[in-house]
Amino acid sequence: MSEHSWMPSSPCGDRCIPRSAESIRRIGVVVRAASALFAIGLVPLLILIGLFWPRVRSGAAIIGARVLLAAVGIGLRVEDLRSDREASRTRNGSLVVAGHVSWTDILVLTAIRPARFVARGDLVEWPVLGLLARSMKVIPIDRGRLRALPGTVDQVSATLRDGGSVIVFPEGTTWCGLAYGSFRPAMFQAAIDTETWVQPVRLRYVDSFRDRTTTSTCFVGDETIGRSIGRIFRLRGIVAEVALVAPQAPGHDRRDLARRCEDSVRADDVHDRRLHPINERVDIDPKATFTRR
């Protein structure tokens, strides 16, 4: 994969993964694996239900994601901090943005509100998540091909224009959860072009035994998806905490929109600069890559 100035990168690696996380016994891992296989087997059925009864499609996706999340062993806690008026602004479609820690983020966010995802192109080939990704019609992004970026933004715009919702991880890559990267502005152009409100989401994983943010679920460094799944299956007491905060108006400047959403998502976070450096905000010349509608 070729690199360029836009290429997202993270300094997080194996050292970010705690060695003393609470774990379950082998029999528990077997039970979780069996539960996950059962949940995966339900996905085609849920897809068929969605095809024949579109009105229950969203509910079917939520059920599938929650069953898989439970099989993985991650609890879910959701807090809606929006007023009724704020919530109504994203009821008929929105660009949803969140920080990116792990492949489990997809399960967590789908368990709350199903939407299309912008995700790495090889996601459909992954075990467990591949089938879910195909059923959700993931919008693939090739981070190594800068020229393909405008086409991805156009696909996001088309979905938003049709009244759908799209989930984007603007950091462009995963971080450990105690350190994080800046929100890249590129994908926010789709919200501006379609005059769509943006829904920022605060997402963190908590070790319920220590009552603090944990990096146990992070998918960083050279770890393979198989090793990550096996490691996360053994964790105990992990809860995904999600907070829905006030939506942001699209405005006219994607840099400003990205900054507002990042500030909203990171309002309660304290980045330890001794742990990792903070990436500089990087943008692309809009005249070279985007055409205003």
Rank of each mutant, 00 (worst) to 15 (best):
G163C: 09
G237Y: 11
L178V: 09
I238W: 07
S165A: 12
Q189H: 13
D211P: 13
P170N: 04
A258Q: 00
G172Q: 00
A258E: 03
G237C: 09
G226Q: 09
S157Y: 07
A191C: 10
G177V: 01
A246N: 09
G164N: 11
V206P: 06
Y205E: 02
E171D: 07
C218N: 07
A246D: 12
L160C: 10
I167R: 02
P170Y: 04
V245R: 13
E241N: 10
V242H: 10
R231P: 01
Q155Y: 08
A249K: 01
S228M: 05
T217E: 03
D162F: 04
R254M: 12
I192T: 10
T152F: 07
L235F: 10
L203C: 07
A179W: 12
Q248E: 12
V198L: 09
V242L: 07
Q199M: 12
H252G: 14
E195R: 15
M187L: 15
M187N: 05
V242K: 05
V242T: 08
Q199Y: 11
R212F: 11
S182Y: 00
F183Q: 00
S165C: 09
F219P: 02
D154Q: 15
V156W: 02
E223L: 06
T159N: 10
V220C: 01
F169C: 02
A249N: 03
T215N: 09
G151F: 14
